[in-house]
Structures are given as structure tokens and as C-alpha cells.
């Protein structure tokens, strides 16, 4: 059912500390490793993995940004995954009910057996959290490792999402953000944790902690901003590609 359940008391989610994240990609790779074998999200297929244009389904991506100028400038590593919003538009737009928000803990999931692969949920998400699996024809997203966190065959300390377990700097915290006395809630309160794009109104559960103020100014050298990677041109040689090459030439004239 894509109708949202009443707000749950329990709001499981992540708190990501941008002050300590070193951008090592361990969370992203361990996420891929765990979830590709998971019955809920897996397999996370890759397309053309050893070819010219490799890409694949990942549930967690780590960006690196340059922020500010000169002495106040800094590099910030920024992990991005599903925020398990309290009012997720990705769920309500789903025509089949494959996308749903769990009433008991607020985790947003996709049922891979009923998803029709219309991709509308990925359009509705401002955070780019959902990635389409081209091989399977269904949408994939972070499950908050629902098959780890409740897994009684695991030692209690391992009952956390794979990304949290893998983080070498302790930049990722997992817990109940609906409980004001939980460790994560206290952490958010003490560090002024914030929402991404709060004005859009989806009420993300996951919180981010801003980098702390810099201790002392350093001598900065200005570097040119990296160019964003380009979307590859459509395959060359096909009739459509030749048509668009022709149209491009004609319109540029």
C-alpha cells in the first residue's frame, strides 16, 4: 500500500558526521557487498562492468565537494543514500504498492516481486536515493540493512547496517531517531544535526552533522573546480544516433 502509515514511534535511520567522514568509500563498497547477496535488495547488478561504459546499481554514493574559498575553504566528503523520509513522495507515487513505508520502524522498502520498473519513484526523490537495476528491470534502494539489524543469528554489535559497521572513522551512526533519549538523537541534538532540503517537506529521518569550525587558517591555494562528469552520448552508429547527429548539425547551423 502506497498510502503512508500513521507516523511510527520508532524512526530508524542514520546520522552521518561530515566532520569525520574521510571519503574512503568503505560504506559504499560494504553496502554493495552485503546487499548484492541480500534476498531483499539483491542482486545489485552491474552493466558492462569491464567495458567502456561501466555502471551499476549502488545504494550508497560518496561525493566529495570543495566548499568555500581560500582560508575558509575545505573539502567535505558527503555520503548520500536513502533518508527514509517520514513523508516519502517516492512511496505515494508508486502505482503498484511495491514501494512502501513500514509502519513499525519507518523503513522505506521496495518489493522486488511487484515493482514494474516505471521509475516514477526515482523521479519523485530529490536525493537520488533510488537506482534502477537495468538487468532485473526493478528499482533498488537502501533497506537500512533490514536483514542485518533484526538478524538474531548475528552478535548484537553486528546488528547494524553494513555501512555503519564498515566505517573506519565512526562517521556513521545507526539508531532510533524517534526516541529522544537514544544515542543518535542526543548526538543530533548536541551537534545541531540537520535535514537535507528540508523545504521540500519530505521530513528525512536521516540527519547530517556539519563539519566543525576549522581550528586554524591554513595557506590555501586556489584550484580549479573539477568538471562534473558528462552524461555519455547515446550509442553511436545506430540510426537514431545518426538522426540526432544530423539534427544537431542542422540546428547548430
Amino acid at each position: 500500500m502506497t498510502t503512508l502509515p500513521p507516523p511510527s514511534k520508532k524512526k530508524l535511520g542514520l546520522v552521518i558526521d561530515l566532520d569525520t567522514c574521510v571519503g574512503c568509500q568503505a560504506c559504499a563498497t560494504s553496502c554493495k557487498e552485503w546487499n548484492t547477496q541480500s534476498a531483499i535488495s539483491g542482486p545489485l547488478n552491474d552493466e558492462d562492468p569491464y567495458g567502456a561504459d561501466p555502471h551499476g546499481t549502488w545504494l550508497n554514493r560518496v561525493h566529495s565537494y570543495e566548499v568555500g574559498e581560500g582560508e575558509t575553504g575545505r573539502t567535505v566528503h558527503f555520503p548520500r543514500s536513502c533518508l527514509h523520509c517520514e513523508e516519502p513522495a517516492c512511496v505515494t507515487v508508486c502505482p503498484t504498492g511495491a514501494s512502501y513505508k513500514r509502519a513499525e520502524d519507518g523503513i522505506v522498502l521496495v518489493n522486488p516481486d511487484t515493482c514494474i520498473g516505471c521509475k516514477l519513484c526515482s523521479w519523485a526523490c530529490p536525493y537520488g536515493a533510488r537506482e534502477y537495476d537495468y538487468t532485473q528491470g526493478v528499482m533498488k534502494k537502501c533497506t537500512l540493512c533490514v536483514d542485518r539489524i533484526y538478524n538474531e543469528t548475528f552478535a548484537p554489535e553486528d546488528r547494524v547496517p553494513a555501512c555503519v559497521k564498515a566505517c573506519p572513522t565512526g562517521a556513521r551512526h545507526f539508531g532510533d531517531l524517534g526516541d529522544v533519549d537514544s544515542a543518535v538523537s542526543k548526538l543530533v541534538a548536541s551537534r545541531d544535526g540537520y535535514d537535507l532540503l528540508p523545504e521540500m517537506g519530505y521530513k528525512p529521518v536521516n540527519k547530517y552533522l556539519a563539519p566543525r569550525p576549522k581550528a586554524a587558517p591554513v595557506v590555501a591555494a586556489s584550484a580549479p573546480a573539477a568538471r562534473p562528469i558528462a552524461v555519455p552520448a547515446e550509442e553511436t552508429g545506430t540510426t537514431t544516433a545518426r538522426f540526432f547527429a544530423w539534427a544537431d548539425k542542422l540546428l547548430t547551423r
Binding site: 567535505v76 573539477a226 562534473p228 558528462a230 552524461v231 555519455p232
Partner: peptide
């Protein structure tokens, strides 16, 4: 706003999270 880092100044991409365009970029970019 998207990163919450605007308080420190202009946000510029330094290192992308993937070497080739992923689904999000192919579909939305």
C-alpha cells in the same frame, strides 16, 4: 541546501562518487 554545506560557502564538486554516469545521471541529468 542539497548538501547543507551552503553555510561554509559555495559548494563545488571535487570528486564524483562514480567514474561513469550512473542511473541517476542517465535518467535525471
Amino acid at each position: 541546501d542539497a548538501t547543507g554545506l551552503g553555510r561554509f560557502g559555495v559548494v563545488r564538486p571535487l570528486d564524483p562518487p562514480h567514474t561513469r554516469a550512473n542511473f541517476v545521471m542517465r535518467e535525471m541529468g
